[in-house]
């Protein structure tokens, strides 16, 4: 019995490893057609589901070098626009029903993901720090317990609620204040910020609370003000935890789907202004998975793989940082 349980326990623990590896391999496999077709160019290509003609001789003669063929196609199009002489040929070819192919690039959702996350952090960080300072150092104990408990509960609210509220109540106000569309990078980022706010505030407060009373008292006993105690003793003491809380929040914001899905606009276009609509990786997955097929589907998996790797990198970095500091 002992042996059997131990084996079972070992297998369950190993399951974690297998699932993570499985996610990576599965996503990679499913993304492989897109990876083969577009390579790393995918990351910098803003086109999504765009028909481009296959006109270059290289593409016809040398099909194995598909990646260079794609970039050559781009070059060709630019050339066509630059030199009027060739444009006739181009027109001809178009009318001739030249074979076209659909290309997919991940730049737009990648930019949308990164910028909505950055906006969320920029918005949430100062407020979360303020809440944490208020709860840990300013508020009387009873208020701190009550408000702290409320904030922890708010961190548990399903993210889709934040999205709905954001779309129908918050976005109109943001659009009125800053101009632009109600669905935009800005509104999506801000709602994302509101969503990570309670989480970030709660764990920042927890880190600040690990500072021993006696250490704070020592600083007060030297004549320090509350702000000086926070700045010189509490923050340095709980630095690792606070940075960790920010990185964990960043990880949450990166992968968040529902709070953003209502608000980002879901169009594959690079935003020129912060108030323009665009799309993020999770939203691209959520909205297009159902209808996609073939290379489009594979490209979505490519996006999922990129998101997975990004989140993995961010969290491992945080873990590594914790580990190094803890030792």
């Amino acid at each position: 019995m002992e042996k059997i349980f131990q084996k079972f326990a070992f297998s369950s623990a190993t399951l974690v490893f297998i699932i993570l590896l499985g996610i990576f391999i599965t996503l990679f496999n499913a993304a492989r057609p897109a990876i083969n077709e577009f390579g790393l160019n995918f990351i910098v290509d803003p086109a999504w589901n765009k028909e481009v003609p296959i006109t270059t001789p290289q593409a016809k003669t040398d099909k194995s070098v598909t990646q260079s063929a794609v970039s050559n196609t781009d070059d060709e199009t630019v050339d066509v626009n630059d030199f009027g002489d060739d444009s006739d040929d181009m027109m001809m070819q178009d009318e001739d029903d030249t074979p076209t192919k659909t290309i997919y690039g991940g730049l737009v959702p990648l930019v949308g993901t990164i910028f909505s996350t950055l906006i969320a952090l920029a918005f949430a960080m100062p407020i979360a720090m303020g809440i944490a300072i208020f709860l840990a150092e300013i508020a009387p104990k009873k208020i701190a317990t009550f408000v702290g408990g409320a904030i922890e509960l708010l961190a548990a609210i399903p993210s889709i609620i934040f999205g709905m509220w954001g779309l129908y109540y918050f976005a109109p106000i943001v659009a009125a204040l800053f101009g632009g569309f109600q669905v935009s990078l800005l509104t999506a980022g801000l709602v994302l910020g509101v969503m990570i706010l309670p989480f970030m505030a709660a764990i920042t407060r927890d880190s600040m609370n690990t500072t021993p009373d006696i250490l704070k008292e020592s600083a007060y006993a030297l004549g320090a003000t509350k702000f000086e105690v926070i700045k010189d003793v509490i923050f340095p003491y709980s630095k690792v935890g606070i940075i960790g809380s920010i990185i964990l929040s960043l990880g949450r914001a990166l992968g968040e789907t529902m709070a953003v899905a209502f608000l980002i606009g879901s169009i594959f276009e690079l935003p020129h202004k912060i108030t323009d609509p665009t799309i993020s990786i999770p939203v691209a997955l959520a909205n297009n998975f159902g209808e996609a097929s073939g290379l489009g589907m594979s490209s979505l998996f490519y996006l999922a793989l990129i998101l997975f790797v990004m989140s993995f990198a961010v969290i491992s970095f945080a873990k590594f940082y914790f580990l190094r500091k803890a030792n």
Binding site: L20, A30, L307, F308, F312
Partner: peptide
């Protein structure tokens, strides 16, 4: 395993959806 489990906890839920889909 402990670290991997923590990383898995932070994996984007939509990615897990995509994985199970596949």
């Amino acid at each position: 395993i402990r670290n991997l489990s923590d990383i898995m906890m932070s994996a984007p839920s939509i990615v897990i959806g995509a994985f199970v889909y596949a």
